[in-house]
Amino acid sequence: MVEESKIQSFIKAANTIKAHWSGIINYIESRINNGILEGLNSKIQLAKKRVKGYRNVKNFINMIYFNCGKLKFDYPLYLI
């Protein structure tokens, strides 16, 4: 019906929905979006900006694990 109407804005909207149809259905069924992934990406980009480069890729990956891994460290209150 949209294509028969010849209204360009409706046709564009229908084509957009067709292109993203599987993602729309996946969201409706699971209610999961990529917000968590975007948050992790933001933390990784911040770590990259803080240091302005790493000596090697292994150090950078370790920093990503350190920042995004939600590690808890129990530091001693005092040293004996």
Results as ranks from 00 to 15, higher is better:
residue 73 F to A: 04
residue 15 N to E: 15
residue 17 I to F: 10
residue 5 S to V: 13
residue 23 G to L: 03
residue 8 Q to S: 15
residue 44 I to Y: 00
residue 15 N to T: 06
residue 7 I to N: 15
residue 67 N to T: 10
residue 17 I to D: 01
residue 16 T to M: 10
residue 31 R to F: 02
residue 64 I to V: 15
residue 74 D to M: 08
residue 60 F to A: 12
residue 46 L to Y: 04
residue 61 I to E: 09
residue 17 I to V: 15
residue 10 F to E: 14
residue 61 I to S: 05
residue 9 S to N: 07
residue 33 N to E: 00
residue 68 C to G: 07
residue 31 R to N: 08
residue 64 I to D: 04
residue 20 H to S: 09
residue 64 I to Q: 03
residue 45 Q to C: 03
residue 10 F to C: 14
residue 71 L to E: 11
residue 13 A to W: 14
residue 56 N to I: 05
residue 80 I to A: 12
residue 43 K to I: 05
residue 42 S to Q: 08
residue 2 V to P: 06
residue 66 F to P: 03
residue 36 I to A: 10
residue 6 K to P: 04
residue 45 Q to S: 05
residue 53 G to K: 01
residue 46 L to P: 01
residue 21 W to P: 00
residue 9 S to I: 10
residue 7 I to A: 11
residue 17 I to Q: 03
residue 47 A to H: 02
residue 63 M to K: 13
residue 34 N to C: 06
residue 23 G to Y: 03
residue 44 I to W: 03
residue 7 I to H: 11
residue 7 I to T: 09
residue 51 V to T: 11
residue 70 K to W: 05
residue 53 G to N: 02
residue 17 I to S: 05
residue 19 A to G: 07
residue 71 L to H: 11
residue 32 I to M: 03
residue 45 Q to G: 02
residue 54 Y to S: 02
residue 21 W to H: 12
residue 35 G to I: 00
residue 68 C to H: 04
residue 54 Y to G: 01
residue 47 A to D: 03
residue 37 L to T: 09
residue 77 L to M: 10
residue 3 E to I: 00
residue 51 V to E: 06
residue 1 M to P: 05
residue 49 K to W: 01
residue 61 I to F: 06
residue 76 P to D: 04
residue 21 W to L: 09
residue 17 I to G: 02
residue 2 V to Q: 07
residue 18 K to E: 14
residue 49 K to V: 12
residue 74 D to R: 12
residue 6 K to G: 12
residue 11 I to N: 08
residue 72 K to Q: 08
residue 6 K to A: 08
residue 8 Q to W: 12
residue 23 G to C: 02
residue 72 K to H: 12
residue 10 F to Y: 12
residue 71 L to K: 09
residue 40 L to G: 03
residue 37 L to M: 08
residue 31 R to D: 02
residue 2 V to D: 08
residue 6 K to R: 13
residue 57 V to I: 11
residue 40 L to V: 03
residue 5 S to F: 11
residue 67 N to I: 14
residue 30 S to C: 00
residue 47 A to L: 05
residue 1 M to C: 12
residue 70 K to Q: 12
residue 25 I to Q: 10
residue 20 H to P: 00
residue 40 L to Q: 05
residue 45 Q to M: 06
residue 23 G to P: 01
residue 52 K to F: 14
residue 13 A to H: 09
residue 4 E to H: 10
residue 6 K to W: 05
residue 26 N to F: 10
residue 20 H to F: 12
residue 14 A to L: 11
residue 16 T to Q: 11
residue 57 V to C: 11
residue 54 Y to R: 02
residue 36 I to N: 11
residue 22 S to T: 15
residue 48 K to S: 06
residue 10 F to G: 10
residue 36 I to Y: 10
residue 51 V to S: 07
residue 1 M to V: 07
residue 57 V to Y: 09
residue 43 K to D: 02
residue 3 E to M: 11
residue 14 A to Y: 14
residue 30 S to T: 15
residue 3 E to N: 09
